[in-house]
């Protein structure tokens, strides 16, 4: 244990992995909280899948594998995907869940077509694009972490500055509109920030499981508190804990992909929170029910 701690601080790879996944957990936790409160948990899933063609296109156009370039591509197609979802839901009879499913699967299909196109064009530099599917935290280097920190820091700064606005938007959008908040613009901004969180996570947890990094920490944190500010803090903490522990397991035990390990750690946190959180925990629910049933049956003081 102490050895691992020593390595995290002094070993170059481990330090980057720990920092990278902690960053992802914090940013994903905070922005995911808003997504979950607005019942848009699955938007993150769709956005993550729309990133795949963006990554491929960015690589095809520039020939570079620099994370910043690929992230930019991912963000652009993520954006286009979001716009299509909004347009389809607003202006056709297609419901939101179908729109999410359509955009998610069609963009992913385009991504696979592009991926196979890149592979058959036999570009020696292409190796490694498919690591964005499941994430490979071990390949994080310092410059990636710095990129992630800058992007994530900017997103968190936005949330800090617009905390009041985002809070109102999440709980009572009609009231927000009635007192003159630019609800449409705030909506677009919040969704764009979620795109950033997704993009940060691509290299660590990958496209397929990114949804859980947005939903999991937020859903777990929600069980412990009724205050938004506390929930954001807890979600960041849970996200970081799952990110770091999952990444560490994946890096130290060979051949375990990072994404699934992070998600399994996240799931454990969610289960514990659902069962044992004070007040909302399901276990306390059962205990309360039992004792009140006994009281009623015994006809004691109620």
């Amino acid at each position: 244990m102490l050895d691992l701690l020593h390595d995290v601080i002094f070993d170059y790879t481990l330090r980057n992995v720990a920092l990278g996944s902690a960053l992802l957990g914090i940013v994903g936790g905070v922005l995911g909280s808003f997504a979950v409160l607005r019942r848009q948990g699955l938007l993150g899933d769709a956005l993550a899948h729309t990133a795949l063609p963006g990554i491929c296109l960015a690589f095809m156009l520039t020939g570079l594998r620099t994370p910043l370039v690929l992230m930019a591509g991912a963000a652009i197609t993520g954006w286009i995907g979001t716009l299509i979802i909004i347009k389809v839901v607003q202006d056709t009879r297609i419901s939101e869940d179908s729109a999410l499913g359509i955009v998610l699967s069609v963009f992913f299909g385009i991504g696979i077509v592009l991926l196979t196109y890149i592979q058959q064009s036999n570009n020696a530099n292409q190796a490694g694009l498919d690591r964005y599917l499941f994430g490979q935290a071990a390949t994080l280097v310092q410059s990636h972490v710095i990129t992630m920190a800058v992007l994530g820091g900017a997103a968190l700064l936005c949330v800090a500055l617009l905390f009041k606005e985002f809070k109102l938007l999440s709980f009572d959008p009609e009231f927000a509109a009635s007192i003159g908040f630019p609800v449409g613009k705030l909506n677009v901004l919040l969704t764009s920030l979620i795109v950033i969180a997704v993009v940060i996570g691509l290299q660590t947890v990958g496209v397929v499981l990114m949804a859980a990094m947005l939903v999991g920490p937020a859903a777990a944190a929600r069980q412990w508190t009724n205050r938004l500010s506390v929930m954001l803090g807890l979600a960041a903490l849970f996200g970081a804990a799952a990110g770091v522990s999952g990444a560490m397991i994946s890096v130290t035990a060979s051949r375990l992909p990072t994404g699934p390990m992070v998600i399994l750690c996240m799931t454990a946190i969610v289960i514990v929170s659902l069962l044992f959180a004070p007040e909302r925990g399901l276990v306390w629910d059962a205990v309360r029910q039992r004792s009140s049933r006994r009281r009623i049956l015994q006809g004691g003081p109620g």
């Binding site: 979950v36 019942r39 848009q40 948990g41 699955l42 993150g44 899933d45 397929v208 499981l209 949804a211 859980a212 947005l214 939903v215 999991g216 937020a218 859903a219 929600r222 069980q223 699934p260 998600i263 399994l264 799931t267 969610v270 659902l274 909302r280 399901l282």
Partner: peptide, 16 residues
Amino acid sequence: RVKSDAAIGIVFPALF
């Protein structure tokens, strides 16, 4: 304790 979208977003990544 969680809404339907969050429930889906927790269960399937966990199983996958």
